[in-house]
Each structure stands twice: as C-alpha cells, then as structure tokens.
Amino acid sequence: MTFSHRHLLGIEHLAPSDITAVLDLADTYADLNRQPQKHGDALAGMTQINMFFENSTRTQASFELAGMRLGADVMNMSMQTSSVKKGETLIDTAMTLNAMHPDLLVVRHPSSGAVDLLAQKVNCAVLNAGDGRHEHPTQALLDALTIRRAKGRLHRLNIAICGDIAHSRVARSNILLLGKMENRIRLIGPPTLMPSGIGEFGVEVFEDMNEGLRDVDVVMMLRLQKERMDGGFIPSEREYYFRYGLDSEKLGMAKEDAIVMHPGPMNRGVEIDGTLADDIHRSVIQDQVEMGVAVRMAAMDLLARNLRQRTAA
C-alpha cells in the first residue's frame, strides 16, 4: 500500500493506486467504527486544526470525530468570526497557525485554489475540506467507498451525476475520481448549470433526466444552492423539481438495483423526493455519512504516516 502525498488537496493528482489505498484502509476503519471500542492511535500525540472559512456542520463534525477516534488533539476554528474578518490575509492566518505546530490542517474555503495556496506556506499536512467550486476530495472518496461497498466494485459502472454541476466541487472531484477508476459518467442537468468546456471532460451530458438515468447503476444527486434557485440559473424551484428532481418515477429508468446518493444537506422536494431519500432499499445517503468518518480517518492516517517518515528521515 503506497500513498506518497504530503497533502490531500484534490483528486486530480491522485493515482488509481492512491485511491485504492485510501479506500482499503477506510474499509478497516468502517469496521472499527462499528465496534463499541472505537479508539485507534494512528494520530496519537498529533494536533489537528480544522479551519472552516465557510459554514459547515457535517463535514467539520466528520473530520473532528475522525481525528478524535485516532487519538489526535482536535481544535476547531470558525474562521468566519475570527481575525480574517478584520482584514488579516489568508497567508498571515496560515503562518500564525503554522507557528503553533499543528500536524494536520483541515481547511474549507469559499475560493477555488485557496487551500492549495495555504498548503504552500505551512509545514504540516493539509487536507482540503472543500475549496470554492474546485475540489472536495474526501467527499469523492467517501462516495467511492459507499459505491464500492454497495456494488462490490468501483469500475465499469454507469454513474449519473445530476443537478448543479457548474457550481459543485463535489461534482468535479467525483468526475475526476470515477473517471480515473474507469467508470462511465453521465452528467444530467439544465445547460445553465453545466460548466463550460464540459464536452472535453470525457463524460456524456444529458439535458433530459429520464434519458440520462436509463440503465445507470448509481444516481448521485447534488444540492442546489438556495441562491441559484430564483430566476438566475433556473426559473423556479418547482420547475426544477418537475424536470430534474429525483422521484420514484424518474428513478424507474435506472437499473432496478441502482443506488441513490446525495452529499447532503438535502433540499427535500427540490432536487430529491423526501420519501425516496429515506427509502432504505435505494438510498445510501446514511451510509455516505458513515463512510465519511472512515475515509477521513484513513486519509489522515496515511498523511500522518508520511509526516512521521519525513520527520524521522
């Protein structure tokens, strides 16, 4: 098992073997997490700082729990109320934190590329917890683990990603990861929510959801941000739900055993039907949350091993 990266900034620079290494280790952590005794010591003695420049309850909790289960000292910094508001630059903030010698820095930022920038200025391992519209690598990894466990494999699957592709870092990371693992990817959504140059991504693009969902193994829904709902990108919530909301009728086009995914938080009745989201036979949305903790434990474990090796060398 090899994973030689210093940071986890995105899926783009990972090789398929890196992805498999994370998922294999995450599998063992998923098992551990189901035991009453959940403690590991992979991060014992290490300090993990979660810096969230953008609101997040779920991802931050997931990273926090992952760090605590592996024995790290975890500190959360809500950057929205901090000195960043007082005009301190991202770099200054990073340098200040760096001086406190953290080992792992988990960062979410509203600007694409901000986490890359920060990673250049610190000595510790940096994990990207979502930067702008760029990448959200741990989300793609947890989605991959969920698919692998539900389908028994992570290759040669037909996977549909539906909704606001243009503004979604989850979609980008998933397109990259699932493509690297040799799956067929379809993107479904209105053209106003498709990124430019999509024809060159090596994916199929559908504007008609029924057509796009035909015979797929996996349906990944994306969250539609509230600020995009009125008039700017789509005419209205209800028209969107009619054309692109996942309900049991549209899901009928997919394979009988197709699974339904959503990165959360869901807008019930906008991009997904509430009953469908709760259907334990089709929806793996709760599994995604569970795998999230396992994948983050695995990713931090692997980075910490490299960190220890570098320090020892």
Partner: peptide, 15 residues
C-alpha cells in the same frame, strides 16, 4: 476564460 481548464479549476469565467 471559459473552457475545460477553468471549469476544472472551478474559477468564475468569461466567454
């Protein structure tokens, strides 16, 4: 500039 590269980088673009 809009296109594959900018989309991969998640940057706001102009046609």
């Amino acid at each position: 500039t809009s296109g594959k590269f900018a989309s991969l980088r998640g940057l706001p673009t102009v046609s």
